[in-house]
Design a protein around this nucleic acid. Sequence first.
RNA 1: GCCGGCGUGGCUCAGUUGGUUAGAGCGGCGGAUUCAUAACCCGCAGGUCGUUGGUUCAAGUCCAACCGCCGGCACCA
Length: 538
Amino acid sequence: MPNTRFYVTTPIYYVNDRPHTGHAYTSVLADVMAGYHRLLGIDTWFLTGTDEHGQKVQDSAAERDVAPQALCDEMAAHFGDLLERLRVRNDDFVRTTEPRHTAVVTQVLAELHARGDVYLDHYEGWYCARCERYWTDRDVEEQGGGRCPDQPELHGVERLAEENYYFRMSKYADRLREAIETDVFRVHPEKRKNEVLGFLKKGLTDLCISRNRERLSWGVPLPFDDKYVCYVWVDALFNYKSAIGYLAADDAEHERHARWWPADVHVIGKDILTTHAVYWPTLLMAMGEALPRMVLAHGWLLDSRGGKLSKTKREGDDAEGVLPVPTIDGLLDVFGADGTRWFLATAMKPGDDTAFDWTIVRERVNTDLANGLGNTANRLLKMAAGACDGVFPGLGEDDDVGETQERVRAAAVAAVDAVRAFPETLDVTAVVAAVRSGVAAISLFLQDEKPWKLVKTDDGLPRARIVIAWSLESLRLLALAVHPILPESFATLRTALGMTGDLDFARESQFGALPEGARLGAPPNLFPRIGADAIPSA
RNA sequence: GCCGGCGUGGCUCAGUUGGUUAGAGCGGCGGAUUCAUAACCCGCAGGUCGUUGGUUCAAGUCCAACCGCCGGCACCA
């Protein structure tokens, strides 16, 4: 079934923390997915935003003696800035403190309550206010008592006995298991799917969805009991629907929701798998809503020693002999938006963790972009300027097509074919691999034909022009294939390669689409080589 | 403890349903070349494919056990 539209989301980022490379990774991954769909002419909606309620936000605001909303405004702006600097093209940016969102959460809660899927129950146990959750007696005892099992050094727990509202999540366990097993609701990669199924096999409990307002006021009040606010995750998850007009009274909004829901892909980090693969779908079932088609749980970027980039450790920390971890600001400063995006987009196959440091990023950017794409563009356009007066000479007669020449064409076609397959595969790696082979094919072709020598004789000149033309055409398709990853460089390169007017993939992806006589641009230096001295520290 | 995954040349990894001399990229070394961003091109790395046993005419490629690492879950303290 061909996709007629594509709705992709990132998690909404929690404003308690400043944006770091992990956020950038998720955002770029989703952006690249959105970009490939747009390139193919598929209507695309890409949503991201910020998660602004909850205990940590309330506490941080209190510590800094500012209003929670002020803190949210400040932090949301940081995330917005990051997206801009990364050239991420999200279609919307939702904030959970916006009325359009809180109104939806309120309605959802009322509806769940009215349907009998929310009930009041008594609970007594150890509560960690910072983590906003209860722990079992055993968990707490394991820590020696009194401390939070998750962050014993930082958080204390308190004994609480209170009434709370619960969502009848257990009721939907069987349906959820079936949806996952049959891939009606895909959990990707397979490893994560198995984890969720294993989790479900042990039986689901109900989910506590209320927090006592005396402790936590920064949240959406329960419409049926204002002594409580909504558990932050239940609040947060509904952003995926509130932002596209869910439950809106307005007709146009209503239609917008019908158009985009269900989401095609929720891109998430593996740390929030349970919320997205269990809480979210069961909540949707309770509301009688369709499930998203896929949750894609990616891995983490790790520091050079294999440690996780954590919020408490702060990236960039070079203590204890760990190589400095590049900060997102640092990456952008040194490699620019495109270089940073290239690294992030090719850093790992979604699913696995990947260690990285400055050297790894530098090598990848230099090899693929400076030595590869950039150098090829530069040398070809320089040749074209000399041998063809800066005008595309046309592909010439087809009767003299040698092996390397045909390979150049085939490699470029393979790259745009990988792009066409993207909606099915969602495989950025495959596109990148095809582009790398394409660049290599051009290099071999040039080496084989040596147009710089042919050009020196009148007899050789026509052949040189054909070699240059085929290479340029190939490069043009390769550029098209990486457009969603390298938006800035693509624009420059496309113009330099002679294409004008609005981008039209169907036309431009044809080998030979560039008309003879098209005006070529000056040789660009798209990706300057990054020297070792350009990276911070030693 | 249970479930799942992984362990291939310095690094990162490919290796179809088991079958000729186990591959690629990066780094390193040597060569060629100069159209290009010290780039590109060519050649080199002799790795017992974690260990030990099996199945088979034939096993990184299947089975078992073990070792190590990683996820998830559980339990004890």
